[in-house]
Design a protein around this nucleic acid. Sequence first.
DNA 1: CTTTGGATCGTCT
DNA 2: GACGATCCAAAGG
Length: 215
Amino acid sequence: MTAPAGPPAWRVPPRSAFALDPVDVGPWLLNKVLVRRTGDGAGLRAGRIVEVEAYRGGSDPASHAYRGRTARTTAMFGPPGHLYVYFTYGMHWCANVVCWPDGQAGAVLLRALAPLQGADDMRRCRPAARRERDLASGPARLCQALGIDGTLGGVDVLDRDGPVTVVDDGTPPPEHPASSGRVGLRQATTCPWRWWVPGDGNVSRARLAPLGPPA
DNA sequence: CTTTGGATCGTCT
DNA sequence: GACGATCCAAAGG
């Protein structure tokens, strides 16, 4: 055994839960736990998912898959429950979980975690983070904290012994998640497909796109 | 506390 | 050749 296993209460959700519209999977993912196992000496890192966004693929102008399948977006068109990891702004990685059935593109972007385990290892990966709540409060920060990069593209998050796993620890999603438009977009800025756990301090401080020309 | 501009390179036009 | 599903440090209130 390399990395320690999680608590017995951690259950991997069924793949069918991801073979759905990302707009439904997104809020359902809130309060699930993202687990990171590495082969090196580092311990297990885990955090509660407190912020997500949905991207609906072919019907969503803001989705990387909107203009069809490319080398980069191949994973988004694959089977649900796998990672779509992309590189942006010349320096940042961001991670999504693929949704909808095999062949139909769609994904949920993982935007923020509340650290649960391995916060020391997260801090080592993120020297710029001054406070605990800065460790994974943003999609690129989350990847940095967990050591997720392009080499993990396509991994199955429903493999309980894999490098990245989504588990249910029994905490239900919030009954009334908070929502807003998605962050950092120029297209489809008004679709309210960003959700977060109300009141959680680890949610990213989002800069939303301007609504439109001044009246 | 908030606002602002620069960094930096893979991907697609 | 342009731009991006972002982050950070610096500057101002």
